[in-house]
Design a protein around this nucleic acid. Sequence first.
DNA 1: CGGCGTTTTGATTTTATTCAAGCGGCGTGG
DNA 2: CCACGCCGCTTGAATAAAATCAAAACGCCG
Lengths: 212, 212
Amino acid sequence: MESDTICMGELIRSRKSLKRGQTLYREGEPFRSLYAVRSGFFKSNLQLEDGREQVTGFHMTGELIGMDGIDSGAYTSSATSLEDSEVCEVSYGHFVNLSEDVHCLLPRFHRLMSREILRVHGMMLLLGSMMAEERLAVFLLDLSQRYRINGYSASEFILRMSRDEISSYLGLRLETVSRAFSKLQSDGLIDVHHRQIRIRDISRLKRHHRSG
Amino acid sequence: MESDTICMGELIRSRKSLKRGQTLYREGEPFRSLYAVRSGFFKSNLQLEDGREQVTGFHMTGELIGMDGIDSGAYTSSATSLEDSEVCEVSYGHFVNLSEDVHCLLPRFHRLMSREILRVHGMMLLLGSMMAEERLAVFLLDLSQRYRINGYSASEFILRMSRDEISSYLGLRLETVSRAFSKLQSDGLIDVHHRQIRIRDISRLKRHHRSG
DNA sequence: CGGCGTTTTGATTTTATTCAAGCGGCGTGG
DNA sequence: CCACGCCGCTTGAATAAAATCAAAACGCCG
């Protein structure tokens, strides 16, 4: 095997650009690579035979996707870009080989997988025990925090996904999501104009998600 | 570091027995170990400040739990035995060291983490887009399959968990779960007597979960 | 300006929750 | 051994929440 730096180079070299709406990988395709989002925005979703769809996640810069393919060797979800995006393709085989030599990789990878488990456990809590408005409030707060982490405004941002995609992710119907947006606005917690969101009162929005 | 065999010995030596109702680890405790279930039955659950609880999983022989602690270094869920159980404690530190030498460990571990991600994505689908009876049908089919894998009957088994724990897991109320059990029974799909379950018509139960 | 896709809003129905009561097995103590 | 009370579960009736069906508003693009 070659030197670390070359391998490291290989690892991060293969970039891909995707136009809005393009699919990065599809449910059932053989799993070869993980993808680190460099810029842009993605959704992951599952399909049920009868046509029902479940959006399982939204992913932005700095996040790693494709880990669901490791178990069976085929992706179990599809990933689609919601705006022009760039990813870094990481060959899983290369990664495993490389991590034998480069010590710091493995713990980081494990933490990323663990974090995905946490996230989805949190989604179970949301889907299992929160009401519509609370779900939306938690969703907006989560987005807000992730934008902040990436250096964007935490209080003002543009939704990259449609109401329909939000509704699937939150286990609601499109109309219910729309009503919840309207309610949060009329309560003075947020401003909504189409996909433009402004959080007016973040602490009250957080409290919303306790007291219903 | 000592020889592989000694480490391997260490890795699997530390067994723990738990009586029914005992807690293996609690949300917030520092993360040190993963646990492989050797026998018995566990539940994992999250707590919300306001008292709401979400059961995030049920775990039986052969399954690995505790992976949610890797990211932050503290467990983010609690694990409780639902019957007298035995686990094998696996020090995460030891495991990582050992996996540098013993090649086969890492892929297996990654697959187990990946599998947990799959499982919970599936739960998102269930919680996000299925109705009460369908959720219960899917739950029973999943249990059935896991019992089969472990060499038990797939068509007759005893539930280790209460109606309340099932309802939390399925994002429903206890009463709704009870009604769903009764409905599946009156439809001739299953027999229920308290916690004793018999699946009468597995293929129809599977279809139930398509057509509602 | 007109048409299209997306979103919002309204009225109604369906589904699950809530509240309340009853059942039934099980263990305890008389 | 039986009666009692408790706990977990089931069932019923009323209520609340979200889904569904339907229509109107809005922004976008040609």
